[in-house]
Every structure is written in structure tokens, then in C-alpha cells.
Design a binder for these strands. Structure first.
Lengths: 225, 225
DNA sequence: AATGCATATCTTGCATACAATCGACCGACC
DNA sequence: GGTCGGTCGATTGTATGCAAGATATGCATT
């Protein structure tokens, strides 16, 4: 039997990331308790956990809300992500196993295939593979605190989770970064790996900020489940 | 009326940092509720907050414990602290006001006076001034997420809070770092400020690791309140 | 005598009842 | 007519009762 707080936490987190609870949306404890079939106690605990991850903000006696991020917030978040992912890549370079790098190369191939234009293109599949790819790097960094901080900064609404904003050039650049990162890690060159990772994150930041400034091809709001 | 969870949280945190609850010590909810005069609910919430800050570790159905940090943990923590404090110093360089730098210089003078050998020496007072000094830098960094991450990493048992381990040379070096950091910030030179800050943190790490390897002059265990 | 299992007890996890606080609405007064 | 104050409603914060899981202990069995 899993704990109710874990179910509520996972459900709430997924709902926020999928846009079920829009930014600025109110999160009443009783309402969420009803939706999840549990009582307010696990809901409260889940909300507090999400608060420290930055996914919700709670005001004393006034409940929890989904924060709507300003462009300055996004700037801040990506700067932090660059810093932390870069440091993780550097640490990983001297700790990762060849087997892990092999898997990363394999993932590169799969991502490139899913990114190829045409009927076979599957941008959601890329997101999955991408998550595993970066997960390997973080795991190889072997720093529980660094990883937990990364989780607090990476998994934010509309920060990641989708490659739909990426142009063909963006996708090609991302793929090149992935290949190069694997090469740097295989060479056990921490500085190289860190540099590539920083570029990778900054490129993602550029894509996002471009989309925020001109919210035309943005499809996150239209998601319903 | 302040919330009970805040009282419990502050009390518990202070007790852990002061060594009232030694590393490895068990933290029963009912026991803590009795000590703080509240019920288990605020205690639970406070424990969860402390968990994400790394001050306690909770195992499902098995309660909370104060984690005892291995030398590898300390290594990891100081690496992260170097990274984050360095980044904060860099951001602060282009955002800090001259008034804040003036105050930092003032604090430098006060710390140097408190560090001077003799009857006037007051190492605990240095800790206070030092906290304000670095607080100014963090505030000037103007990044709520960066600051919260720093708080999660800095305020750990036996990481800071005391200058009793510092030799006269260590104290002199620390003072020099502080003066230089103020100068770098006044010059609005982010790279300079970051470099000094990284050196400052690494120097502190060296002092701590030296003390851990040869736990002779360590007085944290003997504290009772 | 040692090991495995069952049980007993203690602790945490969850649910619900009660209290405190905040915001909104309405009325009175200026 | 506008503004200030009070009361009401709703929501969060706290306390406590109950259930489930985990560890420890003791007994039976090999």
C-alpha cells in the first residue's frame, strides 16, 4: 500500500505540470481532498512539499495558489539550472561508467530518429528519452543534494516537458549537444562536459523565452489532460 | 498569534543546530509535541520542512532522525555552497548598492576587532557579524530561489555557526576575504567577486575538514544549550 | 542452542472534529 | 455618497482518535 500523501503529491504535481491547475489557480485543501478521495491531512503535506519545490505558493491562512512565473522568474530559473546542470555534468565526467555513456549514445540515436521530420516524428517521445538522458547524467553526478536542487528547478510548468516549441534548427542543435555531451563524458573531461551542458541549457532558455515573447505556437494552454 | 508550526520549526531547528538533538538522535513526534506544548500535527509539518532542508531525515513509518554527515557529505555540501555563493556574489556585483557595500566594510571593521587576540576576542560575535555580512551579499543577488537553496545548504549542523575552530591565520585570511569581497562588489566586478567568494568557501571547507579529521579542538559536542 | 514465526507494542499515517484567522459584505455614520 | 466598522462566511490551522505498518520479543520447532 502506497501512502496517500504520495498519491496526492504525484497527482497534484502532474496536474499542475499538465496545466489542469492553471497559473494563478486556487488550490483549496478540501476541494483537492475530495478530488483525490483522501482527507485534508495528506493534501496539506503534499502542498507543503510542492511549495518547497516552487510548484505552488502558500500564503498563511489564505491557501495555496499556482504561481504564474514572470519572464524574470524564468531568467532566474534558467540561470540556476545552467549552474546546477553544469556542475552535475562536471561531476559526472569523472564518475560515469562506460555502460551509462553507451546508453546515452543509444538514446541519442532514438531521439534523432524521433526528431526526424515526417510521419515518424514524435516530440513527446523525445521528451521521455530526453528525461532519461539527463537523468543518467544527474545520477552519475552522485550528489543527492545537487540532484534534489535540480529537481526543484527543472520540473516547472512550461519549463520543460515539451519539444513542441522547437524549430528544426533547435532540434538539430539539441541533438548535437547531446552527442557532444556523451563524447565529453566518455573522455572524462569535466570542463568540456560542463561547457556543453551550459550551452545546452542556455539554448533551451532561448527557445522558451522566444516562445514567451511571442506566444503563438504555444500549445500548453490547450492541453486538457 | 504566530502559528504553532513556526514555533516548533524554529525551536527544533535551533535545537538541532545547537546539538540538543545529536546526529543519529531519534525524533519522535509525540515526544516533540510534548516538549513544545503542541500536538503532533504542527510537529509533523515542521519535520517535513526540516527534511527538505536536509536538517532531518524521515523514513516512512519509521520516524525522523538527525542525519550524521559523513566527510563525503561535507565535501558535497561545501562544493554546492561554493557554487551557489559564488553565483550569488557574481549577481550581487552588478546589483548591490554603495550603501550596502559601506555596511559590509563597517562589518569588516567590527569583525576584525572581535577577532583580535586578547580579552576583547569574541568568536560568537564574529559569527553574528559574518551572518549579516553574507546576508547582504545574498540579498543583493536578488534571486529568491538562489537564496532559498543557499539556506538549505548553509545552515547545517557544525557547518557554520562557530569560528572556534579557526586558527589566527584562518581568521586573518577570512578577514582578508571579506575586505576583498567588498572591494570586488564596489568595483562591480562579478568575476572578481565570484572568485573571492569561492576561495572564501573553500577556505572554510578546509578548516572544517581539518577539524573533522582531527576532532581535538572541537567544542560542538560539549554544548548543552 | 539457533532460527524462524507469531504476537505484542510502539510509532507513524490518516481522518475528522474543533478553533482561529482572513476576506467579503452590509450597514451605519460622517 | 463615501468610508469606516462590524459581523458573517469560508478556509486554513490545530488537536485528537483510530488504523496500519514496523520493530522487538518470546516461544516453538528443528
Amino acid at each position: 500500500m502506497v501512502r496517500a500523501v504520495d498519491r496526492v503529491y504525484a497527482r497534484l504535481r502532474a496536474d499542475i505540470l499538465d496545466g489542469v491547475h492553471p497559473p494563478g489557480g486556487r488550490l483549496g485543501e478540501a476541494e483537492l481532498a475530495g478530488q483525490t478521495g483522501s482527507s485534508r491531512t495528506p493534501v496539506r503535506e503534499a502542498l507543503r512539499r510542492l511549495e518547497v519545490e516552487g510548484l505552488v505558493e502558500v500564503l498563511p491562512h489564505r491557501g495555496a495558489r499556482v504561481p504564474d512565473l514572470t519572464p524574470e522568474d524564468l531568467e532566474e530559473i534558467y540561470d540556476l539550472r545552467m549552474l546546477l546542470e553544469g556542475a552535475a555534468a562536471r561531476r559526472a565526467a569523472t564518475r560515469i561508467t562506460p555502460k551509462d555513456v553507451d546508453r546515452m549514445d543509444e538514446l541519442c540515436g532514438l531521439m534523432e530518429r524521433s526528431a526526424a521530420p515526417g510521419d515518424g516524428q514524435d516530440l513527446d517521445r523525445i521528451a521521455e528519452l530526453n528525461a532519461e538522458f539527463h537523468g543518467i547524467v544527474r545520477a552519475a553526478a552522485a550528489s543527492v543534494r545537487l540532484v534534489s536542487m535540480l529537481n526543484a528547478v527543472v520540473q516547472l510548468p512550461l519549463v520543460t516537458r515539451t519539444f513542441h516549441r522547437y524549430s528544426p534548427d533547435d532540434l538539430a542543435r539539441s541533438a548535437a549537444h547531446h552527442r557532444e555531451l556523451a563524447a565529453a563524458l566518455r573522455a572524462a573531461d569535466g570542463t568540456w562536459a560542463e561547457s556543453v551542458m551550459r550551452a545546452h541549457v542556455l539554448a533551451a532558455k532561448a527557445v522558451l523565452l522566444r516562445a514567451v515573447d511571442r506566444p503563438g505556437n504555444d500549445d500548453t494552454e490547450t492541453r486538457t489532460s
